[in-house]
Amino acid sequence: MEILYLLIPLAIIMAAVAIAAFIFSVKSGQYDDLEGPGHRILMDDDDPLIPEYKPKSRRLKKKK
């Protein structure tokens, strides 16, 4: 059972990391809008990767 002396502190450290990550995510505004991002994945945003669909103005922006 001596392994617990290693595992329990490890669990505490992991919990601390989890909390730190969580606080970072709150600070960076990921919890400001809880509805929008769920829909975002459904929108096809990939078309700039397909050359012929590339919107004109976007290309202009890149050139600049």
């Binding site: 669990a11 505490i12 919990a15 989890a18 909390i19 969580f22 606080i23 709150v26």
Partner: peptide, 9 residues
């Protein structure tokens, strides 16, 4: 968040 993670542990 802190309370949730803490409570689970």
């Amino acid at each position: 968040g802190v309370a949730g993670v803490g409570a689970m542990q």
